[in-house]
């Protein structure tokens, strides 16, 4: 078994990690540095676990384990987004060997910090609600199969349904800041997904009305940072453009029909 305990050195190689600590929402942040034993295939979560098992800084001060979010550890739950060497990404799929040292780990900056690396991203779920990101269903009782969908259509929209609500696309978006309500790329891409579904389209009008409201698609300034960081390679700029077209069409139609 390859469970070399941290501190029980093997190769002697070290991984130097600096973590931005913040004990609570109101407290000041400070940095702590740790020296961990290197092992093959180490990722950032393994580093944080090593610290939890031996919460002692590089210069020998006892400290507390770092608070962070993680669940699936295979980049599919979205929980572990953080800034690693300044890049917004998932900690579980970030391998130590691909990084320059010392490795700097910070919480996302566009969401309120709860403690250390834990941030509150509930705004994303709230916005999904606001944009009615669901298929309206009469009920879950047996009503026979759903609508037929061509394989090409499935192949086009399946990638959109892989969004893990990690928030990386919001983190890097200049339009997401204290002075704006912009819902961000992820949510607009979900709007596109539900507008495309034959039943979901029945809510299209309400969704587009919300999209044209405050914080909607008009706030996108086309910086295109979102596509760069999305761990699921979702075609976000394409999604925003399509939702924008749909919104304009609806606005023009509404105007024509009075």
């Amino acid at each position: 078994m390859d469970t070399a305990a941290p501190g029980g050195g093997n190769s002697g190689r070290k991984v130097i990690v600096r973590v931005k600590r913040r004990p609570g929402t109101r407290e000041e942040a400070h940095w702590e540095e740790f020296a961990l034993d290197w092992r093959p295939h180490m990722n950032i979560i393994i580093c944080l676990r090593d610290i939890a098992e031996r919460p002692v800084t590089r210069d020998g001060h006892a400290t507390t384990p770092v608070s962070y979010e993680a669940n699936c550890l295979e980049e599919v739950c979205g929980a572990c987004a953080m800034l690693i060497n300044g890049v917004s990404r998932q900690a579980c799929s970030t391998l130590v060997d691909s990084l320059e040292q010392p490795i700097r780990i910070e919480p996302l900056t566009k969401f309120p910090v709860v403690r250390d690396l834990v941030v509150d991203r509930s705004i994303m779920f709230e916005n999904l609600k606001r944009m009615k990101c669901w298929v309206p269903l009469d009920g879950t009782y047996d009503l026979g199969p759903g609508p037929r969908i061509a394989p090409e259509v499935q192949e086009k929209y399946y990638p959109l349904s892989r969004c893990i609500t990690c928030g990386n696309c919001l983190e890097v978006c200049p339009q997401v800041n204290e002075n704006s309500d912009f819902v961000g790329a992820a949510i607009l891409s979900q709007v596109r997904l539900f507008n495309a579904h034959p039943t979901g389209a029945m809510h299209m009008k309400e969704r587009l009305a919300a999209v044209m409201g405050p914080g909607g698609v008009a706030d996108c300034a086309n910086a295109q940072n979102c596509v760069e960081v999305c761990p699921k390679q979702i075609p976000l700029t394409e999604s925003i453009a399509e939702v924008n077209r749909q919104a304009i069409r609806q606005a023009v139609l509404g105007w024509l029909l009075g």
């Binding site: 669901w134 298929v135 269903l137 879950t140 047996d142 009503l143 026979g144 199969p145 759903g146 037929r148 969908i149 061509a150 394989p151 259509v153 499935q154 929209y157 399946y158 349904s161 539900f194 579904h197 039943t199 979901g200």
Partner: peptide
């Protein structure tokens, strides 16, 4: 069927099934 109606993006056959 229920999941299909909810919009789960299941893979499809040529006929759309």
């Amino acid at each position: 069927d229920m999941l299909d109606r909810m919009g789960v993006m299941f893979n499809r056959t040529a006929e759309g099934l």
